[in-house]
Design a binder for these strands. Sequence first.
DNA 1: ATACAATTTTGTAATGATTACAAATATATT
DNA 2: AATATATTTGTAATCATTACAAAATTGTAT
Lengths: 149, 149
Amino acid sequence: MTDKSINLTEYLIEHGIRPSFQRIKILQYLIGNKDHPTVDDIYQAVAKEVSTLSKTTVYNTLTLFTQASIIKGLRASENEIRYDPDTADHGHFKCKKCSGIYDFAVNIDTLQSDALAGFQIHEKGIYFTGICPACMENKTNSKSEEETK
Amino acid sequence: MTDKSINLTEYLIEHGIRPSFQRIKILQYLIGNKDHPTVDDIYQAVAKEVSTLSKTTVYNTLTLFTQASIIKGLRASENEIRYDPDTADHGHFKCKKCSGIYDFAVNIDTLQSDALAGFQIHEKGIYFTGICPACMENKTNSKSEEETK
DNA sequence: ATACAATTTTGTAATGATTACAAATATATT
DNA sequence: AATATATTTGTAATCATTACAAAATTGTAT
Ligand SMILES: [Mn+2]
Ligand SMILES: [Mn+2]
Ligand SMILES: [Zn+2]
Ligand SMILES: [Zn+2]
């Protein structure tokens, strides 16, 4: 779902998900924020619009969306799951300094040597870590203390 | 760290780690069990030999070993970290049925397209999930209920 | 529209892995 | 032996996630 013109309600129905108010708002946020937000990021943001929102609903909804394969849960961060509305195969680079998570294109098919013959593959996760270009130059990057917790 | 004949004490010293009794026992267990054990696996096993062992010591030691790059922490499992004494680049396949984690060779260099030019890469994690060959045939695999929590 | 059933949301209470912390123990140095 | 340093241990937080049941919403049948 990259096309902004698509109707979110229809989109959910097409994937067998009843389009409740909360679900639409959460999906809307995800599509508008492809920076791999955490559950709390999503909760905090959507709660501003839906004041009665429960974090449990966010968890429920994300699980539902993930099962319907319209989003993907990422393990790029140590402690928490981050979510990605881009379900196409791509790699994730996590900067140790600024904690930013960058997408990167990757030719996953070249990976599939004969090593996994006989295995039925469902998901392919490519996670790199290191220092991003911005943090490489900017030695005095102070975001790390705040965010890396 | 594949050669069994190597002296564990010397090995730790070479990597700047003081070879305490607990550390040697934990390293010994890791080298002898390359099935990617959890912290609790390691604790339960080593505690049989070192009855006074504290789980905190296991955590401390694993962090120390990881920082010294003699082992690697894996995020193949959802909730818990698993540890691998094989620090060479290789992929991990997690079977959703039996929860087993399989190593697989992967040509990681072919991945590095120009997408990450300018990024300083420290770690490369390749995590696949799906069904392993054994579980594909054996439809009535009951391990899943026990182990998958 | 009303009554009933099914679904969704919500709040609160567990769970469980990891971390923080300080006292106790062991090891190194003088 | 005395003292300083490093390691281990036990217990108490932390914190993301899950479990659960009541409340609210929505769908369906009269
Ligand atoms: Mn992404
Ligand atoms: Mn491995
Ligand atoms: Zn950065
Ligand atoms: Zn299996």
